[in-house]
Write a protein that binds this DNA or RNA. Structure first.
Lengths: 121, 121
DNA sequence: GCGTGGTGACAAAAAAGTGCGTAATTTACA
DNA sequence: TGTAAATTACGCACTTTTTTGTCACCACGC
């Protein structure tokens, strides 16, 4: 998703929240301050390159706060901003929606297989 | 985003909602039934191949309902399912959050340029 | 020949992963 | 006491994987 195609805010948010990592990172960060290496440990499948990219994206979007401590083995901390914290319950709501609607879907697997209608308008 | 990396529902939802199109399509569909060509007209930059892909993905996720009418110039209609309709306010909430937090961010552009701390832990 | 709603092959573009290098300092060990 | 190695958070160049776009094609009836 390189550039925007509509002037719609939805597309703008999705540009920053799209993908596997942004929401997952927000989730790990809602428990409090994390360092780069903490986040890598939290999800070992992310490469450091991508992790920096994603964190920078979230920082630019005003969702996370990046704090650099000058020093010896170098240290950077990441936290959610106020806006980021405000976003958490909204993501929660969507996760909840998914669970609810998943539960309704699972039992019979694919009951709507042959749902086609022949109508004469 | 090929496969899942966590067992977390958030990652699952994002797998279907990620990208420019899913949320936009949900938005166009919330106004009511649309046909394939309507959706193409609504967003002319999407290729027909991607549009079918996205619609199928949303269908499999139980968010949209696809109805084929046998007949003459061939006709397919797309609507939101109940679950899809339930999702709309949640996406709205996120769009609203974005607007609010964008408004708070815009005026001064980038005031947090040199926010670094030198602390002794 | 047009419009409808697709499918499939192939190519281009974008995103993601890999490995190496960097800084300054502490610690490990001989 | 000197030297080597590790730590942390990346940046850069390169390759691989994934996504997206393009084009051609299908059937159907008008």
């Amino acid at each position: 998703m390189k550039s925007l195609v509509s002037r719609c805010p939805i597309e703008e948010v999705m540009q920053v929240l799209s993908g596997r990592w942004p929401t997952l990172l927000i989730y790990y960060l809602k428990d409090g301050t994390k360092r780069f290496s903490d986040l890598r440990r939290d999800n070992p499948t992310v490469s450091h390159r991508i992790l920096t990219h994603e964190l920078r994206k979230l920082e630019k979007a005003g969702i996370v706060q990046r704090t650099v401590f000058d020093g010896y083995p170098l240290r950077v901390e990441y936290d959610l901003t106020a806006a980021g914290t405000a976003l958490v319950p909204l993501i929660d709501a969507i996760a909840g929606w998914w669970d609810a609607h998943d539960a309704a879907r699972d039992p019979a697997a694919e009951p709507s297989a042959a749902e086609r209608a022949a109508a004469v308008p």
